[in-house]
Design a protein around this nucleic acid. Structure first.
Length: 598
RNA sequence: GCGCUCGUAGCUCAGCUGGAUAGAGCAUCGGACUUCGAAUCCGAGGGUCGGGAGUUCGAAUCUCUCCGAGCGCGCCA
């Protein structure tokens, strides 16, 4: 246990020590057999007066120990007092055990930050190399991406980064919906643009086809490749050709939009590939489920709520979703004999499982929320409960400009695209803002505010913190001339500083905040919530800015002390810790950490 | 009608999977620039955590029930 309690994670270290004490108490025979420590946690108390670390051990173990919380706390405290990391222990309230750590613990924590650099906070043991499939974006290849897609894209990408940092083996995946009726509509729309490119006057785009101008290049490309050959073919012949070309060009555009946000997927999985190329995986999956008794022919009651126009009561092929927690059984085949989207989706998720992924994360738009239960049901059925699926629903984005809604008319096909927004405000602003909100909360995205350089704009505020740290380094060379330029060398140099001299309460707060980073990574990764990193970085930057300004009124608190190179180096070590963690967290979010803001 | 998500300061939102006196920004009011970057900081006021009940040492957090908002509800994806 003591070996695993590496100092790279101070809170994990303390927790291990608390666990050890509780375990020892238990095995000394006073408790009934078996001890469950899973609910014992350590955390920083809200009120600093309560010490550095608090644990609820006595309270959550009171039943197992058959001892009153305060009495149990006394027993645990007595042993913790002997710990060489702990300066003092006291018991408060209903049985909290408050620990004050020795000052050396914080000095050591800072040295750890400096020593590990960009690896600090990495939680390799958490994921332990386990495979995770994160599927995100998966926008239909029928047009350019809008801002809502962008949010899912950024969220999925940051989550993938986060899980990698937490030690998982992550594959970033995009499900290309290239098989349904929508891509046929796309093909017909593109065919129209093709005729237009050949000089025909096509007039108004008919109802039901995609009117957007973005299909014009597809028409031109087809004209350039095929001349008028496609005109002479019947639709059944030209449609697959036009469809393939249109999808390819749309995907190229989408990948370009994603690249502008530094998003790159490892796998683009084609829905069509499930049914083409030899084996029909959808049919195979349906038969697999039929063999388990989870597929049958039957009738469904008519849908409630909004009446369905052309409702027709008929027998159909159904998946027994109700056996796995869904509300109704779900159809797998359409009346025209084709598979439903759901049927393909089951096969797709089974395919992921068969590729060795037992941890699945899907990132969906809010309008797909009603779809979650049936997919969860399907995954249970198809993997016999051996896979976990976490569906992250990303809420919609309200685009504003200085508080006023930006008009979007979808009907004309003329809407604000993701690319336009990225071009206007930059990828860093888009990425950070989309992560500076919980995924299931509606996001107001104000185009004017995100390029503002003020505290109101968290992107700027955090980046400025990083730049400001570098500004200190630049100025510090007058006192510490041999301060290295390169980050790794600088960190190594500063790790030798007398960091014990950092004793100001606000400095210790900063050290505590830095020590919290690995814990924040772990919690955010476990919850699949990258926004926690964004908020952590904001808090860290805030404390750093505050300490900077404090030096204005109280010169002895400045980072650079002209006649004391030793103290300056200690303070620079603190600044380096802050800069390093800001850079690390920003990297997880995929946001650039600039050395200066000018 | 059913399901999912949400409801926290005037506004926009956090709240570390059940912890101690519920936090931040904006807005309001009052302060700090012969400066390591004032692009920043400090302080003040502001709350029945939508209402009610339950679970337990302890609830904004878990359960139930109302109220309100958004999304969805065979053969679209």
């Amino acid at each position: 246990m003591a070996d695993q309690a590496s100092p790279q994670h101070l809170f994990a270290d303390v927790l291990a020590r608390v666990h050890a004490v509780c375990g020892a108490l238990a095995t000394e025979g006073r408790w009934s057999a078996g001890i469950d420590l899973s609910r014992v946690v350590v955390e920083p108390p809200r009120d600093p007066a309560h010490g550095d670390v608090a644990t609820n051990a006595a309270m959550v173990l009171t039943r197992q120990a058959k001892t009153k919380p305060r009495d149990l706390a006394e027993q645990i405290a007595a042993r913790l007092r002997a710990d060489d990391l702990i300066a003092s222990v006291d018991i408060a309230g209903p049985g909290f055990i408050n620990l004050t750590l020795k000052a050396s613990a914080w000095s050591e924590a800072l040295r750890t930050v400096l020593r590990e650099g960009s690896s600090y906070g990495r939680r390799s043991a958490m994921g332990a190399g386990e495979k995770v499939n994160v599927e995100y974006v998966s926008a239909n290849p029928t047009g350019p991406m809008h801002v809502g897609h962008g949010r899912g894209a950024v969220f999925g990408d940051a989550l993938a980064n986060l899980l990698i940092f937490a030690g998982y083996d992550v594959v970033r995946e995009y499900y290309v919906n290239d098989a349904g009726a929508q891509v046929d509509v796309l093909a017909r729309s593109a065919h129209l643009r093709y005729r237009e490119a050949l000089g025909e006057n096509i007039g108004e785009i008919p109802e039901g086809l995609y009117p957007g101008e973005y299909l014009k290049p597809v028409g031109q490309a087809l004209a350039a490749t095929y001349g008028d050959k496609l005109l002479k073919m019947p639709e059944a012949e030209w449609l697959p050709i036009v469809r393939a070309k249109a999808i390819a060009m749309m995907m190229e555009e989408i990948e370009g939009d994603l690249a502008a946000l530094n998003i790159r997927h490892d796998v683009f999985f084609s829905e069509r590939s499930l049914i083409e190329g030899g084996t029909d995986q959808v049919a195979a999956t349906i038969e697999f489920l039929r063999g388990k008794g989870d597929v049958y022919e039957g009738r469904l009651p008519p849908p409630k709520g909004a009446p369905v126009e052309d409702y027709e009561d008929r027998e159909q092929t159904l998946f027994r979703a109700t056996a796995y927690g869904d509300d109704v059984d779900r159809p797998l085949k359409k009346s025209d004999g084709g598979y439903t989207y759901f049927a393909s989706d089951i096969a797709y998720h089974k395919n992921k499982f068969d590729r060795g992924f037992h941890n699945l994360v899907d990132v969906w738009g809010a309008d797909h929320g009603g779809y979650i239960k049936r997919v969860e049901a399907a995954i249970k059925a198809v993997t016999s409960g051996k896979a976990t699926l976490d569906v992250k629903v990303v809420q919609l984005v309200k685009l504003l400009r200085s508080g006023e809604p930006v008009k979007m008319s979808k009907r004309s096909g003329d809407f604000v695209t993701l690319r336009e927004v990225v071009d206007e405000v930059g990828k860093d602003a888009v990425r950070f803002m989309m992560l500076y909100r919980k995924n299931d909360a509606v996001l107001d995205f104000d185009l004017a505010k995100v390029i503002e350089q003020s505290r109101e704009n968290p992107v700027f505020y955090v980046q400025y913190g990083h730049a400001r740290g570098h500004s200190v380094f630049r100025n510090a060379r007058e006192v510490v001339p041999d301060l290295p330029e390169e980050a790794g060398a600088r960190a190594a140099f500063l790790a030798e500083a007398a960091v014990e001299r950092l004793t100001d309460p606000a400095e210790l707060d900063l050290l505590r905040r830095l020590a919290l980073y690995p814990r924040t990574i772990e919690a955010a990764a476990a919850a699949h919530e990258p926004h926690r990193i964004a908020f952590y970085l904001y808090d860290l930057a805030s404390e750093f800015h505050a300490q900077w300004t404090r030096g204005r009124d109280l010169p002895y608190l400045r980072f650079i002390i002209n006649n004391d190179a030793g103290m300056t180096k200690a303070r620079l070590a603190l600044v380096q810790g802050v800069v390093s963690v800001l850079a690390s967290g920003l990297a997880v979010l995929g946001v650039h950490a600039p050395d200066e803001m000018r």
